[in-house]
Amino acid sequence: MRSQNEFSYGGDASVKRPELNQEISDQDWDNFVYNRKSLRGKHLELWQHISGCRQWIKVERDTGTHEIFNTYKADEASS
């Protein structure tokens, strides 16, 4: 168990940057930069272990209860 203080939040991890080698609509950019689902319940999000090993991780957490279901490496696919 590590203290929450050691971690810094990085936002919704399900957001994908549009592929740059193709036409990107304003709507695509809008969705990437601004629009978020932000629902109650399971939420896949990025955290950085900023006061520790400084790695980025993906965390599946409940936004209502803060229960953590799963963690993944930043480049690992979440199931």
Partner: peptide, 16 residues
């Protein structure tokens, strides 16, 4: 807001 927006199939520039 986001909970009701989802029922309307809207995604908003809002986080809770």
């Amino acid at each position: 807001t986001n909970i009701l927006a989802e029922k309307l199939n809207m995604t908003l520039p809002i986080e809770t």
